[in-house]
Amino acid sequence: MSALLLVPGLLLVLAMGVAPLLAMALIGFWSVDEMVLVPDLSARAWLEAAGSATILGLLGRALLYGSATVLLCALLGYPIALAMSRLPPLLKGAATVVLLTPLYVGEIARIYAWRILLGVNGPINWVLVESGLLDEPTRVLLYTPVSTLLALVYNNLPFMTLAIWIAAERVDLRLVEAARDLGGRPFAAFRRVTLPLTSPGLLAGALATFALAAGDQLTPALLGGTSGSTAMSMIDSLFGVAFDWPLAAATAWLLLILLLGVALLVLLLTARLPATRIVLGGGR
């Protein structure tokens, strides 16, 4: 009976998630004749997308930005999440609000704020020059991959931190005490107990951040300067300016396959670890 409860959600996912994707896959086989979309069965778009150095380069960049964001968010978010899980309940609520505050401001506003901060005449450069660390303002900070990555990490850190925090909340502190009691130094207790038990959160955070960062278009476009073109912006201009819907659809699908592939790979690898299996699979 309870399986019936799944039906509405399933229908919604099929109609709103899967159907457009299938439609796009279909369009990938069509062709364009004099700015007119012709229903067809041509592999042209798929071959062109898979053979284009530009498109493959952009897909590689998506992978790179996604992975780098995941890595930095995990390194920054983990200590924050762990510290949050040890706070008294009232402060936990406050910490959650603080953590999510950046998300309440629109993405555009955040990106422009970064522009001001990172600019040649911005406060960061001012501090660097005034303190004597630099002779003149650096241009590395803005319109470079550095600024893109910085903003991607900033935007996605809350998601990663929240995911790890929820996992950390469920770790029984007595297990950490037991690890210390049995002769483990604080770091050993962390590595052998806290880290494995929070790995599901880390994994969930990594999957979410990876997809968000790899698929982000605005941040690289507004902060990346000449390095700011992405697979997303490519797809956008193929659909719009170039009116090559089949190529755009094929490129979008390649990006989807790439992101899904990475997610599946990560899931498969972690599911093989007995520790994660127990943690994910209902062990107490």
Binding site: E177, D181, P274, I278, V279
Partner: peptide
């Protein structure tokens, strides 16, 4: 000194 904890605190992932 070693402890047997109240609810045993066995490591669930080991």
């Amino acid at each position: 000194v070693n402890t047997v904890f109240q609810s045993y605190a066995l490591f669930p992932h080991l």
